[in-house]
């Protein structure tokens, strides 16, 4: 598999703080790589180093097989970036903004016109082309931000937390757009602290903490890193400490927690936990309103590996 990005032993420090610490990874052609980690884990610093926006202490970065430097304009021409902060001109319309940022890459007027039209369609901004950024909602503004970053049809796209503070409709639109970009052949590096997005979108995931890779692999590979098999949650009328202890003593139960009569039971292994729990509740005549089962999440993996939650 061809590597689009190769990072070797990358280290970036701010005085005493090592924001990125001896980081190495690759991004394969055509994949969506998720960089997952809590705030301050080094995701954005890594992206900024990859784009030569930040100088770094040591390490090597190769993109499309070439060393990435601030004046590697041939490489920059093939890269698209969607920054975390919305970066558009308040004085220009939606169309003019996309046209300007596309124009930084595409000189030919007719090609640019077609590309801008495609970007508008991809992000669903057709009805807002004459609007000024101030007239757009937060979600639409994010979509404009994405359109400005990808209008020139780059081969490699960096998306730095593109769905922060957007409504569910815009989020779905953005995620659909990213899938389309991948189908069109783009390689995507996607940073976020929303594990659900990474789970449904990314082919491979790198989990970062304190500037280091703590785990990497596919969604399934990462979940195998934890011994959690299933999580069952029951909302009950009331439950005694004795009954909780009895649940804890059931086969394969790893952990039981109770928060305001919402009981979470974590199972290590085994089968039919749900049936066995229902039988126990019936036997003990414990009344419940809601009961549901979940597979382990990346948050559980992160918790297992670091002892803290992703959103800490």
């Amino acid at each position: 598999m061809k590597n689009v990005i190769e990072v070797r032993n990358l280290t970036k420090a701010y005085k005493e703080l090592r924001a990125v610490d001896d980081l190495s990874f690759e991004v394969h052609e055509g994949e969506i790589l998720g960089l997952l980690g809590p705030n301050g884990s080094g995701k954005s610093t890594t992206i900024n180093c990859l784009l030569s926006l930040l100088q770094f202490e040591s390490g090597h970065i190769r993109i499309f097989g070439k060393e990435m430097t601030p004046d590697a304009y041939d490489l920059k021409a093939q890269i698209g970036v969607v920054f975390q902060d919305v970066a558009v001109f308040e004085e220009l319309t939606v169309y003019d903004n996309i046209d300007y940022f596309c124009g930084l890459y595409i000189g030919d007027k007719n090609t640019r016109k077609a590309y801008v039209r495609d970007a508008i369609a991809l992000t669903g901004l057709e009805e807002f082309v004459k609007f000024y950024p101030k007239q757009l909602s937060g979600g639409l503004l994010r979509r404009l931000n994405i359109a400005c970053g990808i209008a020139h049809k780059p081969k490699l796209i960096f998306l730095d937390e593109p769905t922060v503070a957007v409504d569910p409709q815009s989020r779905n639109n953005i995620l659909d757009g990213i899938r389309i970009l991948r189908e069109q052949g783009a390689t995507i590096v996607y940073t976020t602290h929303y594990m659900e997005e990474v789970e449904i979108l990314c082919d491979r995931i790198i989990i970062l903490d304190k500037g280091r890779v703590i785990a990497s692999g596919t969604n399934e590979e990462l979940k195998e890193l934890t011994d959690i098999e299933e999580k069952v949650t029951v909302e009950v009328d009331r439950i005694s400490q004795e009954q909780l202890a009895q649940i804890k003593a059931l086969e394969h139960v790893k952990e039981v927690t109770n928060s305001k009569n919402v009981v979470s039971i974590v199972y290590r292994e085994g089968e039919d936990h749900f049936g066995k729990l229902l039988a126990f509740l019936g036997k003990e005549k414990i009344r419940y309103h809601k009961i549901y089962s979940e597979r382990p999440t990346l948050n559980d993996v992160f918790l297992e590996l670091t002892g803290k939650e992703l959103r800490d």
């Binding site: 304009y73 041939d74 920059k76 021409a77 970036v81 920054f83 919305v86 558009v88």
Partner: peptide, 18 residues
């Protein structure tokens, strides 16, 4: 001041424009 905003400047810096 519009061109000098950090976010706009960064977009220009990652583009192939000299």
């Amino acid at each position: 001041s519009s061109f000098r905003r950090d976010c706009i400047r960064r977009r220009a810096n990652v583009s192939p424009i000299n």
